[in-house]
Nucleic acid binder design. Structure first.
Length: 207
DNA sequence: CGTACGATCTGCT
DNA sequence: GCAGATCGTACGA
């Protein structure tokens, strides 16, 4: 197991990184509780030309300011007034790329995650969306801007390797306002059967 | 200031 | 499958 270092996040191809993140571990140590999950779904937001991005057309506000910084930091924002969505900022030259983590398979600290989600047992909907996984991992908007090489939130490579043919691509979710950019295949998902096998092994249930 | 609207989740049907 | 919840943010007046 090795932590992803800063240079990992400095690449200029956000699509490549979004695909490569499938199989990496997202780990948090928040409120003294260690929790983690295997990343199984991501979405890329590709710079200022991407109509679906908060940074479309160079939009730069207090909320998304962090998107314009050097890669390797978290961008967390509130969606629908309820959900804290966790993104990873990438690139090194003020190009506002970001990758939304959409789903994980819960791995470490499951008791803590169950408490945070106010659930008594793991269901198929446990950490299958960007809002629920942030909730389980304890990530909130106050964590926006923190570096991913610190001791609060980081990523690890634990040698879960998958081939390109095991990763499905498709349009992003909930971005119909983005016009034709809504159809771009910027969503990456680990093959459903592989997810089920991993979840079954870890949770003793099938999703 | 006032208003409109989400990079969603849940529960009910 | 669908509607309602819910509030910070963006943007226009």
């Amino acid at each position: 197991m090795k932590r992803l270092e800063e240079d990992y996040y400095l690449g200029n191809d956000v699509l490549q990184i979004a695909g490569d993140l499938i199989g990496k571990f997202l780990v948090t140590n928040i409120d003294g509780k260690l929790t983690s999950g295997l990343i199984i779904e991501t979405e890329a937001y590709n710079g200022m030309a991407d109509r679906a991005s908060h940074a479309y057309n160079g939009r730069r506000t207090k909320r998304n300011e962090i998107m314009y910084s050097r890669g390797g930091v978290a961008y967390v924002y509130l969606c629908y007034g309820v959900h804290h969505l966790f993104n990873i900022v990438t690139n090194s030259c003020d190009v506002p790329h970001a990758i939304l983590i959409r789903a994980i398979v819960a791995m470490d600290g499951i008791d803590t995650m169950l408490q945070r989600r106010e659930q008594s047992r793991i269901s198929g909907k446990f950490t299958d969306g960007p809002g629920t996984l942030s909730r389980a991992l304890g990530i909130k908007t106050k964590h926006s801007g923190i570096p991913l090489n610190g001791n609060l939130i980081w990523l690890e490579d634990r040698e879960y390797n998958f081939g390109q043919d095991e990763i499905d691509r498709g349009p992003r979710i909930g971005v119909t306002y983005a016009g034709k950019d809504a159809l771009l295949p910027y969503r990456y998902r680990l093959d459903k059967k592989i997810i089920a096998a991993i979840a079954n092994e870890r949770h003793k249930l099938s999703l």
